[in-house]
Amino acid sequence: MDVLVAGSSGFVGSRLCPELERAGHTVRAMTRRPHSYHGAGQPIRGDVHDRDSLRKAMDGCQAAYYLVHSLDDPKFEQRDADAARTFGEVAAEAGLERIVYLGGLGAEGDDLSPHLRSRRAVERLLGVGGVPVTTLRAGVIIGHGGISWEVTRQLVEHLPAMVTPKWVHVRTQPIALDDVVRYLVGVLDEPETTGRTFEIGGPYALTFADMLRRVADLEGRPLILVPVPLLSPWLSSLWLSLVTDVDARTGRSLIGSMVNETVVHDDSIRELLPFEPLDYDEAVLRALRDRVKARHAA
């Protein structure tokens, strides 16, 4: 199958493209800078805000992956909505059979953060042209280069003791990057996933405090967490920008999402794609090993 990957050079897309090729698909790696792309697949110029470039990129494809977000933009909700609508409409014009999208967990009845609210809007808008959309909703993805994972790792490695706001006691269901990619590849070859929404996660839920403690234990580092009743998302984001390399705007968007519980309530995807996801500790160890490999390769 000829498949377009929008977001091919990103955290998930760069791991997805080679796995799609291994599964026998022909990959078009969409990027705004094809001459500087060195990953798997055939690089092709495309911009989710440019209809003409999307038409050329999608021509002849049967399916497309949409892995694009703009958290670092102050108007990310509107930009992501506009891009998703454009992508969905051009996909219909190009005759695509399906779109696969990686979204975010979070209960429908919750007061979702702007970040998660935007993810849900993108789900809907990708389908405006009538192309079936398969959505995989995930919480924190554990893998080298992922923003949420990097925040966790850097906090543990930079601070042996830290004051912690209320959001560190909210539960999420972290999932290994390898398993996210495995699901993304798997749904493409499973007709029953077409047009459906699935929740994906690791084998169990953890609070963010649990995740910090597990990383500290695995790295053999001391860690003391001191809870405080008042630490606003704005102050938390400034704190993150001081002790990690995540900028304050992106940190604020991420922290806003951490107030929402992001756990799996429906694991029906495991009936269609049955495998045992990696547990949190193994996911962390793989992320740490990948970081060492990347540093040696640099």
Rank of each mutant, 00 (worst) to 15 (best):
F11P: 11
C17S: 10
E21T: 06
H25M: 03
T26V: 10
M30I: 01
M30N: 08
S36I: 12
S36G: 07
D47A: 10
L54S: 01
R55H: 10
K56W: 11
M58P: 05
M58L: 15
G60D: 09
G60C: 02
C61R: 04
L71V: 00
K75A: 14
D82P: 03
A83Q: 14
F87Y: 09
G88P: 10
E89H: 13
V90M: 02
A92T: 11
L96M: 00
R98T: 05
Y101Q: 02
G106C: 12
D111L: 14
G129T: 09
G129F: 13
V131H: 10
G146S: 02
E150I: 04
V151T: 08
V151R: 04
R153G: 07
Q154M: 05
T164C: 11
P165F: 02
V168S: 09
Y183G: 04
T193I: 13
G201A: 09
P203T: 12
T207D: 04
F208W: 09
I224T: 09
L225Q: 14
V226R: 04
V226A: 13
V228H: 08
S236R: 10
S237N: 06
L238P: 08
W239S: 13
T250M: 15
M258D: 11
D266E: 05
D267H: 10
P274T: 00
L278Q: 02
E282T: 15
V284K: 04
R289C: 03
A294C: 01
R295Q: 11
A298T: 08
